[in-house]
Every structure is written in C-alpha cells, then in structure tokens.
Design a protein around this nucleic acid. Sequence first.
DNA 1: CACTAATCGATATTTTTTTATCTATTTAAA
DNA 2: TTTAAATAGATAAAAAAATATCGATTAGTG
Lengths: 205, 205
Amino acid sequence: MCSEPTIKRLSVYHKYLKEVEASGQEFISCTKIAKNLHLLPIQVRKDLSITDIVGKPRVGYHIKDLRDSLDRFLSFGKGVKACLIGAGNLGYSLLRYKGFDEYGLDIKFVFDNNPDKIDTYIDGHQVLDIKNMAEHLSKTEIDVGVLTVPRVYAQTLANKLVECGVKALWNFAPIRLLIPQNVVVKHENIAGSFLVLASRIKQIR
Amino acid sequence: MCSEPTIKRLSVYHKYLKEVEASGQEFISCTKIAKNLHLLPIQVRKDLSITDIVGKPRVGYHIKDLRDSLDRFLSFGKGVKACLIGAGNLGYSLLRYKGFDEYGLDIKFVFDNNPDKIDTYIDGHQVLDIKNMAEHLSKTEIDVGVLTVPRVYAQTLANKLVECGVKALWNFAPIRLLIPQNVVVKHENIAGSFLVLASRIKQIR
DNA sequence: CACTAATCGATATTTTTTTATCTATTTAAA
DNA sequence: TTTAAATAGATAAAAAAATATCGATTAGTG
C-alpha cells in the first residue's frame, strides 16, 4: 500500500485531473501538476508511480489514462457502508458534502436523539431515532460509524457502534476514543489543525 | 519549534490533562497517558519534553504544572484574528464549535453573499455582506481567512483575502488554492481523510 | 534499611517520507 | 537530419518521525 500523505495527495491529483480533463487537454507533465498544486515535481512523480501509467518524456502523462488509473486505485472507498450519528450542523454538512460520492461512501443510516430532528430528511436521508440503532445495524451490515456528536456522547456511542460490529470509526468529536485494537479509528482533530496553522503564522513573523 | 504531528498530539494531551485534573488527581505518568490515548509511552515522553516540566520517576508529571506549561506552549493561537467566509453548514459548525476558544481563535467577522443570511446572527456573530469585506478588513487587521464556501468560490475569495493582507488561509473547500509563497495555507482535505480511512479498512480484512 | 519495580530522560536506532541526482527517452526546432 | 531542451523513471541521499535501549532516580515493600 502507500502512506497516508500519499493517499491524500492522490485524491488531490485525482480531482485536479478531472478539471484539466474537462478543459480538453490530452497530456500533462508532472512539472505542470506540481506547479499548479504547489508541490515538487519529484513528489508528484513518485506518488503517481503507484499507478500503472508511464509518462512520455517531454510530453507527460495521458490525462484520461492517469485519471482512470487513479479511479481504480482509489476505489477502496467504493461501497463502504456508513452510518452517521449526530444530525447537528457538522453532520448536516457532511451529509450534503458531495465530495465523498465519487469515492463511494454510502451513508445508509443517520441517527440522532433529538425528537425535533427524528423523521426529518437531510439530503434524502431520513433521520432515525438513536434508540433503534442496534436494531437497524443488525439488519444491515455497516462498515463505518461517523461520529458527529457533542463530545460527551462520543465514547458511549463509539462503544455501542463497536458492539454493533462496525469495522471503523470516523470521529469528529473532540475526544480521543478508546476502542478495541481490531477497530480502525480515524480522528479529525480540528482544534489541533488550528494550532498547527497558528504555529506556522508565528514562525513566519 | 516542533512538528505538525507533535503539535496535534500536544493538543490532545492538553485536553486530556484538563479532564484528569478535574477528576482530582495530582500526578500522572506518561505510561498512563499513553495507555488512555492509545499511544506509546516513549512518544508521549518525547512530545512532553518540549515543556519545561520534569517528571518524577515512579510518579510521573505534576498534572497542573504540565497543563500550565502546555497552556503556555500552545499559546500561539492566542489572539489570532480571523474572518470566516461562508455561513453555510460548515461555517455554522465552526462558529459554534467551542474547541477553539481555549486556544484563542478570535473570529472578528463572518461574511456571506446570501441576502437571507446577511445581518442574521450566528452564535453572536453578525453575518456581513461579502461585498463589504475589503472595507471591514482595511479597518481591522486580520490574520487568518477561514474559507467554508463552495468549491467554485474558493479561489476567487482566497485572492481577495490575500489582497486584503491576511497572513494565512484555512481552507475547507475541496480545492487546492494557488497563493503567494508568503501566505500560509492549511488545507483540510476531508475527502482524502475518508480515503485514508477506507484504505485502512481494506488492509485489515 | 535494603531491595524491587516503575518511571523518567538522554541517546541511539529504525522506519517513513521527502528531496536530490543522474541517465535515457522523446519532442521540437535549427 | 541533427541538436537542444524537457521530462520520465530509477536509484540514492537527506530529513523527519517514530520507536527502542539503557542508566539514573524514586516510591513503596518486606
């Protein structure tokens, strides 16, 4: 496989190539990709070497072939079945964010505990009562639990999701979850991201 | 300074220590921190060595001192003045997310182009007309522009923010921004994050 | 009071990730 | 047709990050 930074960059190339493709170009060099995405050509070349596409010197890569190859490589997102817990603002944003669709994330259920939200629809997803989560998940196998709940509920819900047999958790709550080793957890640490940004600003001055 | 992963972990320790402190304990070992946060003791020790706090063998670190020291170290977020562009769902979430407050992010302005949103209030912030952005930013110096707009507007708005003199951009739109070298840009690539998660699930099976 | 077990902190090693160098290939221009 | 410039790809080096080792220190126990 390949590293986390590489996967993220591949998704960036992928998106970028779709744009360039739409503009009608047929070939693109890694020098140009690098310039437009503020990266180094060497890094782009190395990242793209995971594909089966070889570029032509002086010309670059065939855009459609490369995009096809990335489509295939990035297909591990295809058919990943998820449920989202917490239909607040963040949950709302994620449900309406179309960027996952091309990578195949399939949100099967949305749960919340707020009676005002239950049975409403968000972007075509019916909000279900969290009380019935176990029942729903026993009928339909779910790979990923997406946690967009307030901090205080996160751990309890994580435990329940694991009991229901999810393979992975994608946690947006500002807390580090304690979860069995066999379950994949990806934390999004937004406050930490801000600190990284702030530290870089300080460095510049 | 220290690395990006370290800064993120320090923010995690910081939050965790506040919890433990509230529970009344006085000392904590890095072994215990590591165990509870699913990290390795060595890494915790190394990360914490940027502080001026020394631990006692067999006992660990004095929690309050350590938390104080992290407070100081993580203070580079203090007084960072920001404006947020795009009062959609994601913007809404960020405005209401209290996790930044303790690190000092100060959101001075919120802009949007939607007449229905202009002059409404979100968590105490008046939504201003994007047309007047330059004027507002000329009066109050702003460090960071937070972009929570749809993809198509992101680059144009980024350019405007740079013209207005922001030092950094925090971009949540799914596009890689082209920005002068002297401006710090931090991209949040949420679709890329999903792919990383998906790839890890595939690895496990 | 001596011994044991836990833990820190410094240094070293390994692994991962990024960046550089060099050669061969190919296009386009002279 | 020859030559020059741009570029890919392989290999190598450097930098960054994570992990391991080991001696010194200290609280608790017999």
